[in-house]
Amino acid sequence: MRHFLALFLLLVATLSQADTGSVYIVLSDNNELYQQAAKAVQAELKTQGFSKPIHISSTQSLHKKVLHPKDLIVPLGEQAALNIHSSFERNSHLYSFIDRTQIPPHTDSEWAAVVIDQPVQRLFDLASTIVAGRYRDKVIVAISEENQLLRDEISKLNNQSGIPFEVLLVDENSQPAKVIDKALFNAGALLAVRDEHIWSGENAKWMLYQSYKFNVPVIGYSKRFLKAGALASVYATLPQTTDKTVQLIMQWEQQGKLPEHGIVYPNFEIEFNKNIARALKITIPEILPEGNKN
């Protein structure tokens, strides 16, 4: 009898620990980036006194476990998000380091996503600051014709400064570099937004090539744009994304639920390529919209 009682108490203790809500950080890949991000999240949580267990696992190992509904799953990256969201619908999902367009279809589960995208508004604001007062002050952006998400976002854009703004729609059979050719003639800046058809591979290269050819500065959405020839980039760094993720987890711990739902943008950096600025004869503005400037 004593033995049965002891076993029961142990089982209850074990189950009660799971019920308190663990954090499962799931890696899309076992690469250095995700490991670095996961460890950064784990370390920051511990630093901030997060008391609940933190597990770092792959999608395969997570599927072997039985999760408590109150556990928080933090998929890092696109692949982890896709693999997890349908399997653990009862759990809260905090996507991180994910592209806005790659967020899985919404379910009934609670979810939030710390995205690596930058809102078009941030890019536009920076572009407005750059082209303000210049002869060529039109800001242009090229997006895929079928990218409704971006089209919606752009339609909601706040253009208080009245800077001319032109949206170039590129169908899937057209080459973006040729499409923007005429628009670049009198453009003051070109916004690079996350659109696979426009800003990836060869298209991205020739977009940058054409822009530079017409002396039109490009405002990119990642730090790598600076190396590729953009004038400036608006981007979130790994610590900024990590911080935002940690902030949400901490609030989840405190409130028992995610504080924000949907897409969450981390803080961002603004960085200029001074060589490009010099080549394009553009003065880097002293006052930048928000975030840091480098």
Binding site: L33, A37, F97, A204, G220, R224
Partner: peptide
């Protein structure tokens, strides 16, 4: 083609 993603898996 340039790689423009900072956090691509």
């Amino acid at each position: 083609a340039p790689n423009l993603d900072d956090f691509r898996a």
